[in-house]
Amino acid sequence: MTTLIKLEIIRALRNKKFLFFSVIYPPALYLIIAGGADSKPIPGMKLDVGLYFMVSMATLGAMTAVLLGNSERIAKERENGWVRQLRLTALPGRGYVAAKMASAATVSLPSILLVMIVAAAVKGVRLEAWQWISIAAGTWLGGFVFAALGIAIGYLATGDAVRPIAMLFYFGLAFLGGLWMPLTILPQWVQNIAEWLPTHAYTALGTAVEVGEAPHVKDMAILAGYLLVFAGGAAWLYRKDTRKA
């Protein structure tokens, strides 16, 4: 399984389109949204624009890498026979799913760190050392939830259909979870939905640390629940695909 993880990381790093959208795009978007904004607190929040969007854009970068990257690669691998070849080896199904999740989460780390570096250099974001480490670690670990979702989508859709389906999940979860704009300025019905979505819980890990608090138990429980659902769904779809093959 270790060999497969290394192979997946190398393949991802050689993909120029992947590197742009997962590594360069989030910090560039951060500069566009927060670069010229003032440092006043966001209405209804204790955070200013620089702090809030540092977490949301780091989250977006991790989601791009693990959700979009995973789903499209798996759908293509199913079509070109790579997954069928792996089944002929001693690698168990759970090993394949775990390798995909681990490799996707690994390559999401550069995007997370780059957004944080840009926030510190351009917006003058200043935090304690434990806060920087906690935000980076929480954002990276939270990415496993969306890595599992990407695997499930990759086994659910065909090569032609996987992109629109993945994009629907990507943009829907990003908007409703408050990644594009703070939830406090959105309608109440959006806030009510967002409270139970994985993207809101995901960003809440980092925003809680930014104001000097520990991540809330409810947010961690929501992420753990979604991880079990997405990983279980991915494993079931993998077994279903195996029986069809």
Rank of each mutant, 00 (worst) to 15 (best):
residue 131 Q to P: 00
residue 132 W to V: 08
residue 130 W to D: 12
residue 131 Q to G: 01
residue 131 Q to E: 09
residue 115 V to W: 09
residue 124 G to V: 00
residue 113 L to A: 10
residue 134 S to A: 15
residue 125 V to M: 11
residue 114 L to T: 12
residue 135 I to K: 01
residue 103 S to I: 00
residue 128 E to F: 13
residue 121 A to V: 15
residue 130 W to S: 11
residue 111 S to L: 06
residue 135 I to F: 11
residue 119 A to L: 07
residue 113 L to F: 04
residue 103 S to Q: 07
residue 116 M to I: 10
residue 127 L to H: 03
residue 109 L to V: 08
residue 130 W to Q: 11
residue 119 A to R: 09
residue 115 V to H: 01
residue 121 A to N: 11
residue 108 S to C: 12
residue 104 A to W: 03
residue 115 V to D: 11
residue 113 L to P: 04
residue 117 I to Q: 10
residue 122 V to R: 14
residue 119 A to W: 04
residue 132 W to P: 06
residue 107 V to A: 06
residue 120 A to W: 14
residue 103 S to E: 04
residue 115 V to T: 09
residue 134 S to I: 04
residue 103 S to C: 04
residue 110 P to M: 05
residue 129 A to Q: 12
residue 121 A to Y: 12
residue 111 S to P: 01
residue 115 V to K: 03
residue 124 G to F: 10
residue 108 S to Q: 10
residue 130 W to V: 15
residue 119 A to F: 00
residue 114 L to K: 11
residue 118 V to R: 03
residue 107 V to R: 00
residue 121 A to G: 09
residue 118 V to Y: 03
residue 112 I to E: 04
residue 109 L to S: 12
residue 106 T to P: 13
residue 109 L to H: 11
residue 135 I to H: 07
residue 113 L to S: 05
residue 106 T to Q: 09
residue 126 R to D: 15
residue 128 E to K: 15
residue 107 V to L: 05
residue 111 S to R: 07
residue 121 A to D: 00
residue 126 R to C: 13
residue 126 R to E: 14
residue 113 L to E: 09
residue 135 I to Q: 05
residue 127 L to F: 07
residue 131 Q to D: 10
residue 105 A to R: 13
residue 115 V to M: 09
residue 120 A to Q: 07
residue 113 L to K: 02
residue 120 A to R: 11
residue 106 T to L: 14
residue 125 V to T: 10
residue 125 V to Y: 00
residue 106 T to S: 13
residue 120 A to N: 02
residue 104 A to Y: 02
residue 131 Q to C: 00
residue 131 Q to Y: 02
residue 108 S to I: 03
residue 109 L to G: 07
residue 116 M to D: 05
residue 103 S to L: 08
residue 108 S to R: 02
residue 114 L to M: 09
residue 132 W to A: 00
residue 121 A to P: 05
residue 108 S to G: 07
residue 126 R to H: 15
residue 135 I to G: 06
residue 115 V to E: 11
residue 105 A to M: 14
residue 109 L to E: 06
residue 104 A to H: 01
residue 127 L to W: 07
residue 108 S to L: 10
residue 117 I to N: 06
residue 105 A to P: 11
residue 124 G to P: 05
residue 130 W to L: 02
residue 118 V to N: 07
residue 135 I to S: 01
residue 120 A to C: 04
